[in-house]
Design a binder for these strands. Structure first.
Lengths: 206, 206
DNA sequence: GTCTATAAGAAGATAGAC
DNA sequence: GTCTATCTTCTTATAGAC
């Protein structure tokens, strides 16, 4: 990894731990192994480093959204796999989702940084809501909608069902960001949630 | 309100909007209507102002917990009212809970400040989790547990049921903190959530 | 308790040698 | 591209008059 990118990497780590304002250009330089003035050969200001991190994230998540077909105009075509979903498969889906968000190093650091900076301006607020509310609900809604359409889950509103599936995952995830020592507890609760979710929605409607 | 308390009030507003590090003692003084050095007659440092806000919050929430009997050793004695709960009453419960957290000025500012500062140290992280995860789940669990005990809701795990009731409320609440213009949308989703929750858990178990 | 003046130091950024 | 030296500005905090 070249210096220019190592700066972004170390800055993201520091920003996610202490917030933008509590990280000094000297801290970033030290982690990279250069002196602070050298940073300015790569980025014209501290703010430019932050902006570059946001830009990089936009690229990554746009690419991911494309891979996951979140924005595809024919999502059904690629979701056959979810048409029938056993309870164990649904638990695996939830655990995989949880584990990816919680343990992927880049995803985790970026989410924590955005959590700290979300109220700084409207753009960051909208980015947070898109990445951690609207996009997951859209993606999960597509999958659960497929299962519902094939009769595996019964609901009058896929949107509400998806919220009820995802919100507990979101809440446990943000808790683990704060208190990682409660991850084991969170995973047990997560399993209980998914099993109960599956039973609730598998019941034939009256 | 005396100057000493007005300082806490204005500081909390600013901290909740910009975060501790982005607020300067001069900003606080200006809002209070005095010059920055005068602050130091009331608090020995900027950090002392922050600590005083945390202390005040601890007092308030401890008092509230006592009022709500969250920590009472005989919660059942005061929860008769929840033994039977219609769908409309449950919607009112959810809306009241949501509205209190979202619109109470002190509660909202404090939550936003803690959101920004939650990763600063372990104590703040634990405070956040206690106030916005453990305490609400404990309180709501007590109420829903009463309804379940009297046969109004059917579940094998009150804890999981309570999480499924509260997590969507939490997620919508934190979304409204970021994007208040989506409050109307959030309230519609909230109503859909509670109606569906009620129907799911009211169904007789097989 | 509030003010003006100012100290003390931190932090972002630039200049210019190598 | 990296360094040392330095500038400028900002920020917390104190001193001392009123």
């Amino acid at each position: 990894m070249d210096t220019k990118h190592r700066i972004l990497d170390e800055a993201l780590t520091l920003f996610s731990e202490k917030g933008y304002a509590n990280v000094y250009v000297n801290d970033i330089a030290q982690k990279v192994g250069i002196k602070a003035p050298s940073l300015y050969k790569h980025y014209k200001s501290k703010k430019a480093i932050f902006d570059a991190i946001i830009d990089e994230m936009n690229d990554r998540f746009a690419k991911q959204a494309k891979d996951l077909h979140i924005v595809g105009n024919d999502p059904k075509a690629d979701a056959h796999i979810y048409e029938t979903l056993s309870e164990e498969e649904m638990i695996k889906l939830g655990f995989d989702l949880f584990s990816y968000y919680l343990h992927d190093d880049y995803v985790k650091r970026f989410r924590k940084m955005l959590t700290i900076e979300q109220f700084h301006n409207k753009e960051l607020a909208d980015t947070y809501t898109k990445l951690y509310v609207d996009d997951p609900l859209s993606y999960q809604g597509m999958l659960l909608g497929q299962v519902a359409a094939s009769g595996g889950l019964n609901t009058e509103s896929v949107d509400v069902m998806t919220l009820q599936f995802f919100a507990p995952i979101y809440m446990l995830l943000t808790m683990c960001d704060r208190t990682p020592e409660r991850e084991e507890e969170a995973l047990k609760i997560l399993e209980g949630h998914i099993r109960q979710f599956n039973r609730l929605y598998s019941r034939k409607r009256g």
